[in-house]
Simulated scan of single mutants.
Amino acid sequence: MTGRGPTAALSAAVALTLLLLLSGCVEVRGTAVRGQSSGRSGSVSNDSLGLARPFLPLPAVTPAAVPDGYDPGADAAADIAAAQAASHADGRPVLLDFGSAWCQDCQALTALVRNPGVHLILARNYHTVTIDVGHYDRNMDLAGRYVSLPGSGIPALVLLGADGTPSRPAGAEQFADARSLSSDQVANLLVDWLYPGN
C-alpha cells in the first residue's frame, strides 16, 4: 500500500463531490450548520442547501404541422395567413417553401424533411408552409411577394418573422440543390436561422 492516509481519501471524496455538483448530476440536500451565540461552534438543522441545476428546463411546445410535399390544390394564401396568425401567437417564424412535385431537388428536400431530426426541428421551432408553383405557372404572384423564383430556382425557402417581415436567410440558396445536402446540413441551417447574428 502507498502512504495514502485519511486526508488523501477525504480530498478525493471532496473532489468527486465537486465534480458531480458542477456537472449537474447531483441534487444537493442535507444539513446546514448555523453558528449560535451560546458559545457552541454551531448546530445542525435539516434545512435544504438547494439544488444544483445548471440548465433551465425547456418550455413545453406544441409541435406545429410539417407539410409532406407540395399540394397543387392547397389555398397557399390562406395557408400563409394561418401560419402568420400562429406565428403572431407563439413567436415562431414562418418558413415558406416554394417548390413542386416534379422538381428533383424539391423531392430531395421532402425526403430530408422526413428525417426525424429535421422534422423535429421544424415541428418545434417553425410554422412551415409549402407552396406549389407547378411549372412556374401556379402561385407565381404570391411567390413574387417574397422571392424571385426564376433567379433562385426551387425549392426556394423564405423566412417570415413574427411581424411578417420576409427574409432570405444565409444558406437558403443551397436548397435549390437539395440533392447535395445531408439531413445534418439541413438541420444545422434550420437551427442557425433561429439565432441570426450569432
Rank of each mutant, 00 (worst) to 15 (best):
T7V: 10
A8T: 09
A9M: 09
L10Y: 05
S11F: 04
L16Q: 15
L16C: 12
L18A: 15
L18F: 09
L19A: 13
L20C: 14
L21G: 12
E27N: 13
V28F: 12
R29M: 06
R29Y: 06
T31S: 14
T31Y: 13
S37C: 04
S45I: 11
S45L: 10
S45D: 13
L49C: 12
G50F: 07
G50M: 11
L51D: 14
R53Q: 12
R53S: 13
P54Q: 12
F55N: 12
L56C: 10
L56E: 13
L58M: 13
A60N: 04
T62G: 05
T62M: 11
D68G: 08
D68I: 04
Y70L: 07
P72C: 13
G73M: 06
D75K: 08
D75I: 05
A76I: 03
A76M: 05
D79T: 02
D79L: 06
A81Q: 11
A86T: 01
S87L: 00
D90T: 06
G91S: 06
P93F: 00
V94K: 00
L95E: 00
L96Y: 01
F98C: 08
G99R: 02
A101E: 11
W102Y: 12
C106T: 00
C106K: 01
A108W: 01
A108C: 08
A108E: 04
T110A: 15
A111S: 14
V113F: 05
R114M: 12
N115D: 15
N115W: 02
G117V: 15
I121D: 02
R124I: 04
N125H: 14
T128Y: 00
V129W: 00
T130N: 06
I131V: 15
D132G: 08
G134W: 01
G134P: 03
H135Q: 14
D137N: 14
D137P: 03
R138K: 14
L142V: 06
L142N: 08
R145G: 05
S148G: 07
S148C: 09
S148W: 03
S148N: 15
L149F: 05
L149S: 05
P150S: 11
G153Q: 07
A156I: 02
V158M: 06
L159S: 07
G164M: 05
T165E: 07
R168F: 00
R168Q: 10
P169L: 08
G171L: 03
G171H: 01
F175A: 01
A176I: 00
A176G: 10
A178L: 04
R179V: 07
S182L: 08
D184F: 10
Q185V: 02
V186A: 04
N188W: 02
N188M: 08
L189V: 03
D192C: 04
W193Q: 10
Y195E: 10
Y195D: 09
P196Q: 09
P196F: 02
G197W: 03
